[in-house]
């Protein structure tokens, strides 16, 4: 029994591919739904197109960064599992941690093909439970959040409700920024400052050029990451 042949066999590709198909179908349906609603709200097609293009540019950098983790996972968990888990809500680091945590529970003699198969089975069960936990948690919390938001919109001053919701986004990004740089090596801070300065300059210099404004985040990421790497 060759464990690598099982890990990378057609059966595992099909079993793992189901999740990727679900994700893609869901995303395409959400896109269709949001386009229709944007039309209803009077957001013209050109603005919708710009929004999608900006989202692609903003997602491109972090997606590229996931590639390295994907390759690490392919080497340890096999192509199909790595492909599935990097696409779904399971994060690369967590999946590796889970795989090594449950290794100790395997009962077959270490180093034997049976033990390797058991390790794989325990790992994919644990990953399945982790991903199911995220999905169920999100469904329950969004249901609760949606009820709270409805009440807020009905009872609060609309200006205040809008400010409250918009403010949450700013608070989250403040957290995300400080979490990236606080007590970290100087290149992280340099990358953040360079990214910020680039955005500042792009906003000032190209205030009237919509196309360049769309690229502002992408260019800021490149400049920031480049400066960080140079400083390292």
């Amino acid at each position: 029994m060759d464990i690598n042949a099982i890990k990378n066999g057609p059966g595992m590709w099909i079993a793992s591919g189901i999740m990727v198909v679900v994700i893609l179908v869901q995303a395409l349906l959400y896109l269709r739904l949001s386009k229709k609603e944007a039309d209803n709200l009077g957001i013209d097609k050109a603005r919708q197109k710009e929004a999608r293009r900006s989202a692609i540019i903003a997602a491109a950098g972090p997606t590229l960064a996931l590639s390295i983790m994907l390759i690490t996972l392919i080497a340890s968990l096999g192509g199909p599992t790595a492909w599935m888990r990097m696409n779904d809500v399971g994060s690369g680091r967590t999946e590796l941690a889970i795989a090594s945590t449950v290794k100790d529970m395997v009962t077959a003699e270490a180093g034997t093909p049976e033990a390797e198969l058991q390790e794989l089975s325990y790992a994919v069960w644990a990953q399945g439970i982790d991903v199911a936990g995220w999905l169920i948690g999100a469904m329950v919390m969004v249901l609760a959040g949606s009820a709270v938001t409805k009440t807020l919109n009905e009872k609060l001053n609309p200006t205040w409700a809008k400010m409250l919701m918009g403010g949450c986004l700013v608070s989250l990004f403040s957290y995300l920024l400080i979490n990236q740089v606080y007590k970290k090596a100087p290149p992280y801070l340099i990358a953040a400052i360079a990214g910020g300065i680039t955005m500042f300059l792009m906003n000032i210099l190209f205030k009237k050029n919509k196309r360049l404004q769309e690229l502002a985040l992408g260019i800021s990421i490149l400049v920031g990451a480049f400066c960080g790497a140079i400083a390292a």
């Binding site: 590639s67 990004f173 800021s220 920031g224 990451a225």
Partner: peptide, 23 residues
């Protein structure tokens, strides 16, 4: 050197977005 740059994508993004919100 290019792969090393990947580590600094996240701080660069958040630095840029925070400046954008502040402005």
């Amino acid at each position: 050197s290019v792969k090393a740059g990947f580590s600094y994508i996240a701080p660069a993004i958040f630095g840029a977005i925070i400046v954008d919100y502040a402005m």
